[in-house]
Every structure is written in structure tokens, then in C-alpha cells.
Design a protein around this nucleic acid. Structure first.
Lengths: 194, 194
DNA sequence: ACCTGAACACCGTTCAAGT
DNA sequence: ACCTGAACACCGTTCAAGT
């Protein structure tokens, strides 16, 4: 009469969602396969039925994080902020996406959103600029997120932590504005004649 | 008659130099304290007399890598290339510096070199632009270096690997030129009146 | 001052075996 | 289809003890 004694308890998605929740709790450095398995009440080896490796699991998490960026925004700046905020939405999100990103062949959702916004604003070299913008956002967000974590654990002098964060917001806007500029920097400047 | 039986064999510098050489051989992921100790013919615990933790050793390596950027270059572009090439000089150099960087309070040699070059070229907001440039270079170099490693291990389709690398060089120059631009993007544009 | 030896509390991954 | 149990080859770090 009792139902089947060993119903499958998890699939690929439930494992990924649990891992993502655990990431927010413990951070990337402490996100081990054994911890994820523990949270799922399962042996570590069970995870390898759903994912071939930890790397594959992390890549899946990175995809979920970048999938959250809005696909069409009114401006390059708001699109860039959308990418950054998607990375900020999870602990160590920027570092995770950055360390996973090189494996895709350049066709990420974030990159496409940036390229589209650049085309709309009539920037030169929209594809190259989208890549440059993405590199800037990933580097910037990774450093900011690390700094936030270091601050919260007292690894840095607590003096003017607020000022530093405000300065970094200014740096982000400045970087995006520069990289979005319509001036085609790679074109020979002599063409611009009065 | 035999000399003192247990002369100290290593100091902080010899450990760091061995670790740096080993980094180039095995990469950051395989650079363990136990491997470094093995290369020095020493027990792993011996390393903790010279460095308080692996983190501290890695920070020392990152400092040595960034110390190699030329302190004065004729232009922002050549300074930026100097920073990038210092990161490229060691396997996973960009990732190592990026993951260590948040702990310094912004006074790195690389950042100062960029700020100086920006002031010479008369760019607006040289300090903020130096930070933005550094974030871009670190993000870009980290991704390029990861891609290079993935390529060499066949983790990516081998098609047009050369084109991708050439494209990334173009992206670097474009990004640097945009971020070095003399136009002060954060100043209120209304001030510019005829 | 510099290092050994042993231990502690962990890792990712594989694989036969169970249900 | 999904998971257990046990094993393999590793980690970073601490600490008493040696010389």
C-alpha cells in the first residue's frame, strides 16, 4: 500500500536551484559538491548523475544568473546596469560568471543585449564595443563584489567604506559612457574635417 | 667537520619565486601549498613559517606580477598594454591579480601608472578613469587568458581560434581608446555652451 | 630561525551495487 | 531513472617537537 519506496527526489533543475540558494548563503569558495549534496539530503556521488562535473554545475548557475538580464532596455547605460545588477543579484555572481564565461563562444545573452542597445544608439563597431563593455562590467563587478565581501568581514580598514562604494558607482557610469560613445575610436581620425 | 647539518634552506623570496615558476607550469588551479612544498623538498607545513596563509602567498605573487609594469610610458595606450602584458607574462596572471586586487586600497602600481599617463594626456577625471581602465584591463585579460588556456586544451571548437584572438586585440585597443578619451563624460553637458 | 611529523577537517570524482 | 557506500587521491592549516 505504501507508495514506491524510492521515488526520484531531484532533477537537474532542483539541484541547480539548491546550489544557487546555497551560493548566496556561503559564497563561491565554500560551495562544495559535498555541501550541496548535504543540503539535498543526498550522497555527494548522487550529484554526478545530474551533472558530469562541478564545472558543468557552475556553468549552469552562471547561465541562470545571466539569463536574468532584461533583454531590451531603453539605453546602453540601463542595459549595462541591468547586466551588472544581474551579477550583483547573487553572492559572488560576477566572479562565477567571469570564471565560466570563456567557455562560451561569445554568444551570451548579456553580450547580445549590449550589442542591441549599442546599435539602437548608433554607436560604431557595436559588436566589438559590446565585448569591451562586457569585459569592463565583468571586471568591475567582480572587484566591487570582492570589496564588499572583504569590507563586511573587516579585512579592510573600515574608514570611508561608503566613499569608496560611491566612487565605484561613479567609475561604473564613467566607464559605460566612454565605451558607449558614438565616436568610432578605431577609425582614422583624419576623416573628421570641418 | 661537516658543516652545520640543518642550514635554513629557504626564505620568503625563494618560496615566492619557486611558487611563481610553478604557477607557469601548472596554472593557478593546480598551484597547491603541497605542490610548492614538494618542489622545494620541504614539508607543506614549512611554508607556514614564511607565509601566514596561501592567500598571503598569492598576494605576494600578485604584487610581483604588477610590479613588472613599466612606471612611465609615452601614452595611455602603451601604459595599458604594459599592464596587460605584465598580466600575460605569467600563466593565469590576470586571474591571480584580479582575485587578489580587492584587498589593496586602490594604491597599486598599475593604477598609478595609468593615472599618470592619463594626466599627461590631459584627460578629465584621471583618477576615476584609471580605475575604470584597470577594471577593463583586468576583466579583459582574465577572459582572454582563460580562453587561451581552454583553446590549448581543446575545450573549445578549434575553428577560427586565430580570428577570435585577433578580434580580442581589436577589442582591447578600442576599449582603451574609449576610456582614455579626453571628453569628460561625467561633467554636466549643459556647461558646454557656445 | 627554520623545519619535520602527525594529525584534523575537509575536497572532487569514480564505480560497483542497490531499488 | 536515481541513489548509496566505499574508496582514491588529493586539499589548507595547526601544532608540538626537533635542530
Amino acid at each position: 500500500m505504501t507508495p514506491s519506496p524510492n521515488p526520484p527526489r531531484h532533477d537537474r533543475e532542483s539541484v541547480a536551484l539548491t546550489a544557487l540558494a546555497l551560493l548566496d548563503e556561503v559564497g563561491l569558495a565554500d560551495l562544495s559538491m559535498r555541501r550541496i549534496a548535504g543540503r539535498l539530503d543526498v550522497q555527494p556521488s548522487a550529484l554526478y548523475w545530474h551533472f558530469a562535473s562541478k564545472q558543468e554545475l557552475l556553468a549552469d548557475l552562471a547561465d541562470r544568473i545571466t539569463a536574468a538580464v532584461p533583454n531590451s532596455s531603453p539605453s546602453v547605460l540601463s542595459t549595462a546596469r541591468g547586466v551588472r545588477d544581474a551579477l550583483f543579484a547573487h553572492r559572488d555572481g560576477a566572479e562565477l560568471v567571469l570564471s565560466t564565461y570563456a567557455l562560451q563562444l561569445g554568444s551570451s545573452h548579456a553580450q547580445e543585449a549590449l550589442a542591441t542597445a549599442l546599435r539602437v544608439e548608433g554607436a560604431g563597431d557595436p559588436e566589438d564595443r559590446a565585448v569591451a563593455l562586457l569585459h569592463f562590467i565583468l571586471g568591475h563587478a567582480t572587484l566591487v563584489q570582492q570589496r564588499m565581501h572583504a569590507d563586511s568581514h573587516g579585512a579592510l580598514p573600515a574608514t570611508e567604506t561608503v566613499d569608496v562604494t560611491a566612487g565605484l558607482d561613479r567609475v561604473f557610469d564613467l566607464g559605460v559612457a566612454a565605451l558607449a560613445g558614438a565616436l568610432s575610436a578605431s577609425a582614422p581620425p583624419r576623416r573628421a574635417r570641418a
